[in-house]
Amino acid sequence: MELLGLFNYWVFAVLLMVGFYAVIAKTNMVKKLLGLSIFQGAVFLLYITMDKVDGGTAPIIQPGVVDAIYSNPLPQVLILTAIVVGISTTALGLALIVRIYEAYGTIEEDETQRLDIE
């Protein structure tokens, strides 16, 4: 059980680093944005993992059921908000990339920098 509990956190850390690597190392703006989405997705996993209670179920009161163990619903609500924020960020980022492509004719970051210097 201990290992299973930690497994999620390992996935969180690996995903976080995969996303972060893409953000830093890639020059293609769409790939950067993809990395950013993975990076944010990792954090969603962290929140979802921490709310799980062993043997817990969805926090809904049912008739005839007493002493049920519930998972903590709050982090799920928080992450629902964070997912919305993530989608807005991705949408805005993609919109910016479209405008950048129209203005520069490329979406490679190093090439846009070179074009600006010229």
Binding site: F20, V23, M29, K32, L33, L36, F39, Q40, V43, T89, L92, G93, L96, I97, R99, I100, A103, Y104, E109, T112, Q113, D116
Partner: peptide, 20 residues
């Protein structure tokens, strides 16, 4: 000018990393 677009994109990436 068009530099505003790349500046905004850079800010978006770094700002989102910070917020995350």
């Amino acid at each position: 000018d068009r530099r505003a677009l790349t500046a905004a994109f850079k800010y978006l990436i770094m700002g989102t990393v910070g917020a995350t």
